[in-house]
Design a protein around this nucleic acid. Sequence first.
RNA 1: GUGGGUGUAGCUCAGUUGGCAGAGCACUUGGUUGUGGCCCAAGUGGUCGUGGGUUCAAGUCCCAUCACUCACCCCA
Length: 424
Amino acid sequence: MIQLIRGFKDILPTEAALWQHIETTARGLFEDFGFSEIRPPVMERTELFKRSIGEETDIVEKEMYTFPDRDGDLITLRPEATASIVRAYIQHKLYAVDPVQKLFTIGPMFRRERPQKGRYRQFYQINAEVFGLDSPWIDAQLIFLASVLFQRLAVRDVAVHVNSLGCPACRPVFRENLIAYLSGRQEHLCENCRRRSTRNPLRVLDCKVPACREAVADAPAITDYLCGECRVHFETVQTALGDQQVAFKIDKRLVRGLDYYNRTTFEILAGALGAQNAVAGGGRYNGLVEMLGGPPQPGIGFAVGFDRLVEITPLKAADFQKPPVLFVAALGDQAMAKAYPWTAELSLCGIRTELDLTGKNLKGLMKRADRLGATYVIILGENELAAGKAMLRDMTTKAQQEIELSNVVTAIQEIIKAKSAPRE
RNA sequence: GUGGGUGUAGCUCAGUUGGCAGAGCACUUGGUUGUGGCCCAAGUGGUCGUGGGUUCAAGUCCCAUCACUCACCCCA
């Protein structure tokens, strides 16, 4: 048997219902806050990711699905969405229409890592990106949006971590100080961090090796080196979050893996996830648009790990299934010939109708209707045909009533709509 | 890329010292001529992940391999 590729997975019908619910919730939330959907392709020129994410990152160095196209051009399955969205913003000159663009997208990403809990080679993200705004209020709003999304999905026990990475004016100063600090304690650092301590010293701060954590416990904090503008920016973000009762923690070790971040960065962590505990992460990337050939417009965005969200929401897939409202039990060829057209009519009217074609006897059909969770069963057999009627059974009350075959479609519609209307 | 754990029916899992391949659930049929859930009975269903080795005999022991899984690393 041919099996699916390692690290990939099927979203089966029973789970897909919950996925749809999460997607609908996210979509509705973003739209209410003025975001529009964008759907970039899942493949791009390799160069795009190299330049945006950074040559020295793990993603680019060893995790991308990259291969030559027929003509020899290198193309890559996207490991994240921001690069593509920035590319689209530039390529279609969206900034010319309005530099301010608030966009979201939902779709699969690909990274060739070793699979484990909460980590797949094809995984899904909900992304939100905002271009053209440098205001700290939008930083806060994005963090707020992410936390509202979790609330709406009944997710509890998440921790919002925020930090500021400064800007080209202040980060270099911090960087120099950090390098100086690290050079004095090389012997306490792991092999990775020794290598990183000059090349990418900020990454040392979030190393999880206990010895490294200890060694950098009293390392200089970026927040002490912020320039005036960055300081005010960061403070305003905090004020806004506080005003909206978003609980957060300043995490001076939060530096994040992608090269393009500056100023605000944040992560949302969930305890229930095990080692892969980040459900969302993002930050500001002023300069990225320009670096990729666009105008100097600021940007900020975040990604939510869809698969991880599915794992931590207490919502149950079973609650989102859509069982048939009406199950049609037609006994015999004549009954089937009669039932077939009006069954389709009911479906076209928006009533979930299941015309059973298994050819079982009535007992078997009733059993099947029950298992499918049908609200009503309509029985059409020889007796009913002879009388010009069909028998409608309410599966919860067991009450049965006869329906005239002459106007069976409208009669059933009225009964079903009368019952479901009060719930609106 | 590196380590640990696990692979037996559709699902969840037993399987003793190496000695006939098992249970519960699900499914099919019947008990009930055309009425579901509960109950009872019978039945269907197996490349014991795969390949090799040891043995009179392997689900069980050995080697290899694949898959899944958890962790390292990194991130959503």
